[in-house]
Amino acid sequence: MSFGVRLHIWGERACFTRPEMKVERVSYDVITPSAARGILEAIHWKPAIRWCIDRIHVLKPIRFESIRRNEVADKLPERTVKAAMRAGCVDDVHYFVDQKRQQRASTILRDVGYVIEAHFEFTSRADDSDTPGKHLDIFNRRARQGQCFHMPCLGTREFPAAFELIESDEQMPAVNDDLSGERDLGFMLHDIDFANGKTPRFYRARMQEGVIEVPPFAESLA
């Protein structure tokens, strides 16, 4: 792994929503490669690179909690905005939250900690100025200093993710004893294939002593 990075992330709560249970959200047991990629991108990303998740280390026992919130039922249609722009006034662009209210429960994770092992690849938009060293440096420097483009989150934005770089010569944080042995986590979302009409792709997640080997995206199942 020549250009690999290791990032320790943790937070009090997390929600990596299962696509099959997204109305009343139920989180996966662990972070998805897709969410992990989003966290790395929150720290550094350019169109020239693509983050690939290699391994996910789960550090803390998997625990759930439920929370119910008032949410809104639908989205603002494009045509309303167009009409308002044409009319030059905002009076009709609004949303009465107490009229279109939905109460939804979320089953979320509590007290999570992960280490993301990842590397990046160049995309077709990379040019001569994009050397591996440059992007690796930017990422490491930012992660070391706690810099980020926006605060990374654990699935949804209300659950911010604290992060710290694990230097190449540094030890991995300890994995909780609860996670010893092998655990089959079933089919999990790998990532969304944005090149092919946003098709979700899945992989069979197996956790061995707290470590999940993430297969390359190309090997995931559509």
Partner: peptide, 9 residues
């Protein structure tokens, strides 16, 4: 710094 100078936590 717009990217920040220290970790939030």
């Amino acid at each position: 710094n717009p990217m920040g100078n220290a970790p939030a936590h």
